[in-house]
């Protein structure tokens, strides 16, 4: 998995609360065999007027917002069904960092499993970030747990274990691999009935 240490990019503000996983990726797009390819259908119902016709008024479709890799959003992000495809869609679209008021538990765990940094920040600070001009970059310093933008610095909290995973680009499997000696020791003690 790609590491996140110090990350700089422009951003997209989408300040609605309770953006659920059905909105992030509607169920008609779930039948696939890859983790990629979901990005074009991210937020489908808002993004397209009809198939292949983007809604020009929706912020994700604005020319000046293309290439932004940070999403600044509302409260209770990623609620609803547990589908992991929601994170796959955000990541495939290009988002590496999400800044929200809070997340559903399952969405949060899924984001950590897929190398997406999900930050919790209070509303006032998010509103400041949301009004920055489209070409204004912001820097996420995960090592020092800071968001830096337009001369301001905000700190955020994150669980040490999750930080360790993201900073080192470790997935759950890589972490478990550290226990391989113990796993093998367990296997060697298992009863054999054959």
């Amino acid at each position: 998995m790609e590491k996140i240490t110090v990350f700089t990019s422009t951003s997209v503000p989408l300040m609605n609360d309770n953006i659920d996983t059905d909105q992030l990726i509607p169920k008609q797009f779930l039948k696939n065999i890859l983790k990629t390819g979901f990005g074009k259908n991210l937020l489908y119902d808002w993004r397209y007027i009809k198939p292949n016709v983007p809604n020009p008024d929706f912020i994700l479709n604005k020319p000046e917002r293309q290439g932004a890799q940070i999403l600044v959003t509302g409260d209770n992000f990623g609620c609803g069904s547990s589908r992991e495809h929601a994170v796959w869609a955000l990541k495939d679209y290009g988002f590496r960092v999400i800044i929200a008021g809070g997340y559903s538990d399952i969405f949060y765990m899924n984001s950590t499993k897929n190398g997406v940094l999900a930050i919790r920040m209070p509303k006032g600070q998010r509103e400041f970030l949301a009004q920055l001009p489209a070409d204004q970059e912001m820097t996420i310093d995960l090592i020092h747990q800071k968001v830096i933008a337009d001369g301001k610095e905000f700190s955020f909290d994150i669980d040490e274990k999750i930080k360790h995973k993201l900073v080192n680009g470790l997935d759950d499997i890589a972490i478990t691999m550290d226990y391989m000696d113990k796993i093998k020791a367990y296997e060697s003690k298992m009863p054999n009935f054959n």
Binding site: S82, I173, T176, M177, M180
Partner: peptide, 12 residues
């Protein structure tokens, strides 16, 4: 979930 399927495949 699918991430867990991958985890079990890789590590048992």
């Amino acid at each position: 979930g699918t991430s867990e399927v991958e985890h079990v495949l890789a590590t048992q």
